[in-house]
Design a protein around this nucleic acid. Sequence first.
DNA 1: CGCCGGTTTGAGTCCATTCAAGAGGAGTGG
DNA 2: CCACTCCTCTTGAATGGACTCAAACCGGCG
Lengths: 251, 251
Amino acid sequence: MSPSANQLQCLVNKLGRSVLLDTEDAKALLALPHQVRGFTKHQYVVRERDRATTCGVMLTGFAIRHKIVADGARQIVAIQMAGDVVDLQNSILGVADHSVQMLTSGDVAIIPREALQQLAFDRPRVALAMWRDTLVDGSISREWIANVGRRDSVTRLAHVLCEFALRLEVAGLGEQSSYELPMTQEELGDVLGLTSVHVNRTLKELEARGLIKRTTRDVVINDWDELAVVGDFDATYLHLSDGPRTPARAT
Amino acid sequence: MSPSANQLQCLVNKLGRSVLLDTEDAKALLALPHQVRGFTKHQYVVRERDRATTCGVMLTGFAIRHKIVADGARQIVAIQMAGDVVDLQNSILGVADHSVQMLTSGDVAIIPREALQQLAFDRPRVALAMWRDTLVDGSISREWIANVGRRDSVTRLAHVLCEFALRLEVAGLGEQSSYELPMTQEELGDVLGLTSVHVNRTLKELEARGLIKRTTRDVVINDWDELAVVGDFDATYLHLSDGPRTPARAT
DNA sequence: CGCCGGTTTGAGTCCATTCAAGAGGAGTGG
DNA sequence: CCACTCCTCTTGAATGGACTCAAACCGGCG
């Protein structure tokens, strides 16, 4: 097995989570032509208004999608982790409507768009998996709209802490009950539509209520059920368990 | 031409806007088996947690996608108009993560999911068009996250007024410079993450600045360029003009 | 004519922001 | 090894934008 084939394994894992892929599907995915590029922390993978012709797949590290509004404020619109396809949207729609930036340093596999499109055309199950993946992204976006639009800061923060816990665990990057936040409080503020100062106070509030414990970036969830209640968190929107294959993760 | 074939014309129009479809593609779309259902104002098309097996295509009227949060507040996460496919997400993902509700009365064509999937499989251009359509939906969602997350009420409102103007015009339901808002101020508040009271005050503010004029639900945009500046509106995210075929709408 | 949903307006309150300053911690270079 | 710097986190006090509560107004319609 060539080293490059191994590297796309996380893509196979990701897609295989929602659609049952056979060994041929997996082999075809691993055989995709690609080139691994290392990115430094804060480096841009895609910039708004770019015209992309390739697709990137996150191999290691974390990235964010963000938009900058008129007064210079930033809103993070998505978090990407291992296995996520980072510029499918941009490469198919032509013009990037947002930027993708590394949150940590990490590697990204660059795949020619045509190769991915051809694969989707040849293998219906792979196409379905990518389709579902895109739709889950959309579902998460909708939840985030509701989160920043209608929840107060405590609920809002508790909600994303729950979301991160589950997503990190599913991606094999942490545990549901304890993980390392891959971002600063400032960046967390840009996820939540809050200032870093208020994020700090809100984290303290959650800690004071005994829901979480934290040391620097490490978050320990003391009482998952209660945190989920406070955060108005119902994992349905992550669609972790309504696919053909099910990792059976409860709320 | 049968009457039912005519009714799906708006779907052909919508999809044809982003991908150049040939007559065979159009014919196949119009030949989709479907059944037209009338819905009354406020009636639900899909309810959160439903398991959908059909897809709906908006023929006339407007619908919203929304989520209800813990304290009972509602957030509208999308607006749907003629030609929009309203439960593709839900039918492919299995469980509806949000509700779809009529904003006005209107007709929806109900199409069996399998027929649509088969069509996508048989006709790559149709599949690409649906794919692009889904990605544009995602792009709009991301813009809305930024809108509610990081813009103040005046900017936020001006932004959606611009978005509605363009989308209504493209759908052939109004003009860029003047249109009828299909919703109450309360509903507009649920789009913006604001209260109806504050929406009212903000509308007055925009009017006082001479950017818009309004009578009941009718909005006249006096100064598009300035409204776009105030609303931090850049139409890139609507991807109206970066497809193979271009209606060439500037901002 | 009277009802009812939607709009408008006012006054007071509160959640989150701004501004500002200090503390902690990791990395760098002398 | 320590001083220095930069970044992040923390805390306080004052401000402000949007909310709540409440009442009045308006227009369409039965």
